[in-house]
Design a binder for these strands. Structure first.
Lengths: 335, 335
DNA sequence: TTGAAAGCGCTAACAG
DNA sequence: CTGTTAGCGCTTTCAA
């Protein structure tokens, strides 16, 4: 069965391609009767327009790309929902790419996206990413970019993120007020601005309460579960072990719990734990973990909405808009 | 800056479009010298081929679609990783669509995918989906489909899933051996074959141990967290409350834990809980939850690999292959 | 209100 | 080894 295309329809109806094309999109130029005939046959033959022919001709793809470090993280899974819901409403398709926190891969992916395959791109950068050059390169090619959550410092890109500095501060303050004096901060990157914002908030609280700053309390984790487990274990086994832990991402909370379990350290008696996360199981962990809970769905939604705003050029110069949505500290048993 | 395309390159090099095209794909017909010149200019002008022009011409898109009920579930997030890793290796792009368990949406999405936008489709069906008609329709249109995890009974589609019947049986048997006599099964659908397979395994164990079958113990949940919470709560509050619970999907485990907490029911003393899940936090819940752990990454990988096999028509008739990967019962504190 | 024709950027068959 | 040419299926002037 040969695919039915516009030509097939046109031939069978004794019309020209152009007329059929216009009829299919309900153009005002076409008579109601003709439209009816065209629609009827299209339905009958189950005509589906070829997406790429149309994209090629119109130079737009009705597709956006979503570039993520990973997907097995509650934040990102929920953010995808927000993004997808907006895209679906707009009739857009979503290409998903995972960088696995790898900068080279991220760069390669963004470079490929210059191909006209997408009209715009949403990015949450990898932990290894330091410079925005690959992002600017894409923008220079006429593909708008919106960063979300994992944004880059000092870029002129549109961005949606949360109040990381403030949350780092509030969470640390909370730990201090619950009696912690040696609070470890678990980072996943030395350069990621979001992680550093949280760290700066942490430092501000430390300063404010005049706790001794301690380099050993700043633990840089990475993408290897084994490495992270070892690093946290080392810290929690040391003589000078921390009595509080602030995890900058979800998986580090889980690793910390595992380490505490292995070392028979009681949470919160021996060490208090808080972290950035929207784990649905946060409240039923043993003990329930205090979290800084990000509005993941809303961030995804806002990022997608902003991208469409740029695509539709409604607003004047939304290319540099920065949107900040607030997170909330949810205190539970671990602190 | 106008986009550089093949014509631009050809003009600047004094070559024909055809030659440039061939040179770019390293065709044996082209001299090394010419290739060098073409490549050099392409690099210099940062030439990126237009994906849609090529797709239109070759009638293939180097793109697959991934149609999922949801993404905020450990199983699906990890499966995406498996799928994406295979796709990336093959140089394919991945379009992601969420049905939110809604059949009409699933149908609409699959219908759209007849547009030539993708070369193949991976589907895990919605809880509402009963018939495979919309899937066959896509296949009839020449788009191969592979179902994974949430497969459909009695289809002639390629499928990758796990040994659900056996796992339902083993998990139920385990609960019985730990002393349960009234085991509730939490379903998310009356028609989903995967859920029913698990249920049949459950029933087999019940029969084998001659426990009284009880309709009230079969609790059908749905997509509404509120409804599920209420249904489970009602059951666990009843006089005849179950002493064991088998949850057919991850989120129902979490809901069950929340309900037990609210009702002050001790797990495992008052009620034992097990469920299908690969929650990374399973071991640090309070108490750690016994799970039937599916090889999510491998399932995703296998599904994608099977799809590519079909696309490449290597094998003879893989269109009807059924692959079953085994899950494992991981016994923890909740039972 | 409809038709004719050009062309989006690329590929592939065929000719030279 | 390189060039010419004819589309892939659709949209969009412009003409009728």
């Amino acid at each position: 069965m040969p695919k039915t295309n516009i030509r097939t329809l046109a031939k069978q109806l004794g019309l020209s391609q152009g007329t059929v094309s216009k009829a299919l999109k309900d153009s005002y130029e076409i008579s109601a009767a003709t439209k009816e005939r065209v629609m009827a046959l299209a339905r009958k033959l189950n005509y589906v327009p070829n997406a790429y022919a149309s994209s090629l001709r119109k130079q737009k793809s009705k597709t956006i790309a979503l570039v993520l470090p990973e997907v097995a993280d509650s934040f990102f899974s929920v953010a995808i929902n927000g993004i997808e819901s907006v895209a679906q409403k707009k009739g857009y398709h979503v290409l998903i790419y995972l960088t696995h926190e790898n900068f080279a891969k991220e760069k390669a992916i963004l470079n490929e996206l210059k191909s006209g395959r997408v009209d715009g791109v949403l990015v949450s950068v990898a932990r290894e990413t330091k410079h925005p050059n690959h992002i600017s390169a894409l923008q220079t090619n006429g593909v708008p970019v919106v960063l979300f959550d994992r944004v880059l410092a000092d870029t002129i890109t549109a961005e949606v993120c949360t109040n990381d500095f403030e949350c780092g501060y509030i969470a640390t303050k909370h730990l201090i007020e619950r009696g912690c004096r040696k609070i470890a901060y678990l980072s996943i990157s030395k350069n990621l601005s979001i992680v550093n914002e949280r760290l700066e908030g942490y430092k501000k609280a430390i300063r404010e309460y005049e706790l001794p700053p301690d380099k050993d309390l700043l633990i840089t984790c990475n993408n290897s579960e084994g490495h992270n487990h070892a690093a946290i274990k080392k810290s929690l086994s040391s003589k000078n072990r921390p009595d509080g832990i602030l995890a900058s991402v979800e998986k580090l909370i889980i690793t910390t719990y595992h380490v505490c379990k292995a070392l028979h350290l009681e949470i919160p008696a021996n060490v208090k734990v808080a972290g950035f996360s929207i784990l649905p199981s946060a409240a039923i962990l043993s003990p329930p973990v205090t979290t800084i809970s990000q509005p993941a769905f809303e961030i995804g939604e806002a990022a997608a909405a902003l991208l469409f705003k740029i695509l539709e050029k409604k607003d004047h110069g939304p290319e540099n808009t920065k949107i900040i949505l607030p997170s909330a500290l949810i205190i539970r048993g671990s602190t």
